[in-house]
């Protein structure tokens, strides 16, 4: 068993940002002694797409054609199983992303692979793989080791800096299997006349606002400050703030000059959405909240006291 197999992430003909992060992580393991690094791009009509999933240092890119036009978890699993049998890699890297949630754990369980999801770092040391992952809302990090010939790691988006795309030889394979799930269609996100991705100044609120009746106050404060109101996932799930204003992996990726986060703890899926933000100011009464790990400025002051003071200044 040798080598690293990277499973590319893509949607509607476009490689995901995480693909070249996975390649970077794979190349690092390769340089540490894990062996040759290959990329597999799985789906219907992926040969063109595969040309864009290369990088310097890769052995090859495999365009794995299937009968499904869109992501199909059972065919993705079957294709990776075929590659597992043919290439016998020591490490398989997938994203810790919505598509990989759909097949990677099933593959790992079925084929009894070493396995770790939500991985933030991996290294190859003297022939042994070690991985790190966040636990308890990222307040702690666990170090993991593995006892199998092949280990599948699901790497969290944004954990590793991407490598530059470059041309790599593409080989095509074909899977003869019918999809189990049928794609019906896509539905675009409702924008409701708001585009938080265009705002230069976002005032973003999270669980810390406590009650639904407090939303109005922060909405008004945002308006007075010339900011756009956005929110973290729990407030959207609760139905307090419309989904068009959601920041994070399942919401929007934003790039304001100033991101003022009030009462947001900073779950990984939220932080993935503010990677490209300019100055991040975090206010949270929990001084250990993960948001402070990415903030430029921070305070643990009560956010309602702060709102009083900000209101007095506009």
């Amino acid at each position: 068993m040798s080598g690293v197999l990277v499973i590319a992430e893509h949607r509607r003909g476009e490689p995901a940002e995480s693909t070249h992060e996975l390649i970077a992580a794979g190349l690092r393991l390769g340089s540490e002694g894990a062996g040759e690094v290959r990329v597999a791009v799985i789906g219907g009509g992926v040969t063109q797409l595969a040309e864009r999933c290369g990088a310097d240092g890769l052995a090859e890119v495999v365009a794995f054609e299937t009968e499904a036009s869109e992501f199909e978890p059972h065919l993705a699993q079957a294709a990776v199983e075929k590659l597992l049998d043919d290439l016998q890699p020591a490490v398989i890297l997938t994203g810790h992303t919505v598509d990989s949630f759909g097949f990677a754990p099933a593959l790992a369980a079925w084929r009894r692979l070493g396995f770790a999801p939500n991985v933030t770092a991996a290294e190859w040391n003297d022939g042994a793989l070690r991985a790190h992952r966040g636990v308890y809302g990222d307040r702690l990090v666990a170090a993991l080791e593995f006892d199998r010939d092949t280990t599948l790691l699901m790497l969290r988006p944004g954990a590793v800096a991407a490598v530059e795309p470059a041309s790599t030889p593409v080989r095509t394979e074909r899977l003869d299997a019918a999809p189990l799930a049928t794609h019906i269609g896509y539905r675009e996100a409702a924008t409701e006349g708001v585009d938080i991705t265009k705002s230069e100044f976002l005032l973003s609120i999270g669980r810390g606002v406590g009650e639904e009746e407090n939303i109005e106050r922060f909405s008004e404060l945002a308006e007075k400050l010339g900011a756009t109101l956005s929110a973290s996932r729990p407030l959207i799930d609760a139905g307090w703030v419309p989904s068009a204003r959601q920041v994070g992996q399942s919401g929007r990726t934003v790039k304001p000059k100033v991101y003022l986060a009030l009462g947001i703890s900073g779950a990984a899926q939220h932080l993935a959405g503010i990677r490209d933000a300019g100055t991040v100011i975090a206010v949270n009464t929990d001084a250990e909240a993960p948001i402070f790990g990415v903030a430029d400025y921070g305070s643990s002051v009560d956010l309602f006291d702060l709102a009083d003071e900000l209101e007095a200044r506009v």
């Binding site: 949607r11 995901a16 869109e70 992501f71 992303t97 919505v98 189990l180 799930a181 049928t182 794609h183 019906i184 269609g185 896509y186 539905r187 675009e188 996100a189 409702a190 989904s243 068009a244 959601q246 992996q249 399942s250 919401g251 929007r252 990726t253």
Partner: peptide, 12 residues
Amino acid sequence: ELEGGLVEQVSV
């Protein structure tokens, strides 16, 4: 639920 608010409908 996909990324960026996109939704895919599938049948299984």
